[in-house]
């Protein structure tokens, strides 16, 4: 079953990473790529956190989420382009 749709990361891959000691959303991401795709974990981040909580016996409120970085939504690169005479 796919948990991270953007990067096509399966439940099995994430469980394996947790079993190898990845006990935060960031570490699962770094190991498996879950949350590195177009939506930046906005869909799978909570699912991964819940899986970590279940597997490690932590309360879900104790599982560290991934860091959020700009942009909030994908934006085209050329929006930032300075178009001038140069």
């Amino acid at each position: 079953m796919i948990v991270c749709r953007c990067e096509e990361i399966t439940e099995e891959e994430i469980l394996k990473a947790i079993a190898e000691g990845c006990d935060s959303v960031t570490w699962v991401k770094r190991k498996t790529r879950a949350g590195m795709g177009l939506c930046q974990g906005r869909t799978c981040g909570r699912l991964v956190a819940r899986m970590i909580a279940q597997e490690t016996g932590q309360d879900i409120s104790q599982v560290l989420p991934d860091t959020h970085r700009p942009p909030v939504r994908p934006i085209p690169l050329d929006i930032l382009e300075e178009k001038g005479e140069k």
């Binding site: 930046q40 942009p71 690169l77 050329d78 930032l80």
Partner: peptide
């Protein structure tokens, strides 16, 4: 802005790609 403007001069085909993270 500075980095993007310069890189698009050198690799124009990246124009239109979406930025997903910084």
């Amino acid at each position: 802005v500075r980095t993007t403007t310069n890189i698009l001069k050198i690799v124009p085909a990246f124009r239109g790609l979406n930025i997903i993270r910084t």
